[in-house]
Every structure is written in C-alpha cells, then in structure tokens.
Amino acid sequence: MARAGIPLALENWTYLPLFKSFLEGLGQKVIINAPTNRALVELGSKAIVDETCLPCKIEAGAALTLDSEVDFLFIPRLVSLKKGVTNCPKMIAMPDLLRNRCKMDIMDPLVDIRRDKKSLIRAVRETGEKFNPDGHQVYKAWYKALYTYHHYKHLLRSHLTPREANAVLNGENLVQPKPVKNQIKIALVGHNYNLNDQFTSFDIVSRLRKEGAFVYTPDSISERIINRMNRMLEKEIFWIHERKLFGAAMYYIYRERVDGIIAITSFNCGTSAVTFEFINHESEKMRVPIMHLVVDEHTQEAGLLTRIEAFMSLIKWKRGET
C-alpha cells in the first residue's frame, strides 16, 4: 500500500473529498498536510519564484512538507473542466514547477475537456491502472468517489465551510447555519483556497459569523446558477474559479440582496483583477457596499480585523441599527 500525498492548497479545497476517496478506493493511504502555518509558507516562498501569488507558495510549501512522508504526490493537472472554460496559468504549470523541487514522484493526470472530451475518463483510467489492473474496480472506486464528492458539494451548498463539510463527511454532527430574520447578510467573494485557509484569511468566515453576520460564500452556489449568471456578460469569463466568483457575486447582489460584499484576493492574482472590475461595476450600479482585501504572506491579523470591523459598522449604520 503506497502512501499518497495531497497538499491542502489550491484545487484541493474544491476536490479533496473526490481525490481522497478515489485514491482510498484504489487501496492507497492518503496523507494530507497539517493546516498552513508560517513555517510552511516560508518553505514554499523559498522554493518557488517570488513573483507568484500566496496560494501557489502555500501549495509549494505543502508539497515540500509532504515530500518526506509519502511515496508519491497526487497533483492532477486540471487544464479545463468544461467546454470553453480553462484554469489559471499558474495552476496549469504547477505540477511541472513542483517536479523540479520534490524528491518524490508527482502523479499529474491531465484533464483537458476543451481539447478532448474523453480526457477526464482517460485520466481516471490511467491513474487507476497504476494501482489496480482491474478496470471494473477502478470505475467502481471512481463512481464511489463521485458520490462522496456530490455529498460534499451538497454540504457546501447548505452554507458549511469546506472544513466543516469534511468533518461531516468524517461522521461528525454539525448544525447547518440558517439566516435569521433581519440578520446582516455578507457575501464573501474570493477563491475558496483563500477564504478557507486559516493562514491566508485568518479564519474570516467564523469571525464574520461572530460579528453577527450571515456569511455567503461562492462555494454555496450551484453550477447551474453560476452558468446562468455568467450569461450577463458579453463575453463569458473563461477561468473556472473566476466564473464562480462572478456568478456568486451577481447572485448575491441581484437575488439574495446582501448588505455588503467583502472581496478577498491574494496579491498578484492575475485573474481576479479582471473579475473584480466587472463585479465592481455591478455593485456600483446596485449600490451594494464592497470592500477589497488584498492578502499576502506579510498580511497581519490586526490590520485585517480593523478593516472588517469598520466595514461591519458601516453596514450597520447604513441599515440604521446604530
């Protein structure tokens, strides 16, 4: 039984249950790194080019910490998961960047639906064949993993964070948050790998919940709504994560009528510079307050908290509560 390492960063905030359950179904032991801390980020920033963004550095750090504990690293290369939609260039290049730095093998099955419709199922088969020659068993493991993944997505849609949803999948009992009448509604627009990483965003979701706000994240929106909302634009956004952000922001502005938007992005994130321009435009039109937070490895907790508190009191003042 080989030990597979999955770094808890970037895509894995979305697909961790899928990959984990698939590899476990194939009889592998999955090892996930501990939550991000300062040491891990420093390790990552030393290893990888300094101009890249914080989540990429975290991915590099996580992969390097796992390097000594596992037999291989599992970092799929998700180029495109839908026709006409692609991924961020840095994420596409990531397995190659890490390959030069890690001692262990990196398994990077290529998924590129835009060029080849069958690439997803081929990636599944090729990954499976390495552990289990029986194709039937591989497909069984894959569909079981898909089942887990859909359960996970269902949990995310009921406003749980990925961390809480993973806890539920492991058998814990959690109360699903529900908006109370007249509660302040805040839309937290940002990539899920930034929002949920405790190092990057200082656990912003639970902090906002403590402030008495009901938090909406892009994770809790279904694919169908995202696609529908994206049709508002003359040209649909072609990055998968940005589609999610834009679709979620539009849904919360126009349908959910949130009181405010907090937009979080990491410094030097190229794709969100485009999306936030479009989101800004719409929020200006609908007079929804929006606050931009830019995080990097030097962001300090106090500065972030002050800004969040100021934003919350602005919203309370706007609602006439103070």
Binding site: V49, K90, L97, N268, G270
Partner: peptide, 9 residues
C-alpha cells in the same frame, strides 16, 4: 501569469 510560471523554471 504565464511568464511568472516560466520564470520559475
């Protein structure tokens, strides 16, 4: 974004 990744290698 692409050139940064290229610069790494």
């Amino acid at each position: 974004m692409p050139e940064v990744s290229a610069k790494d290698v």
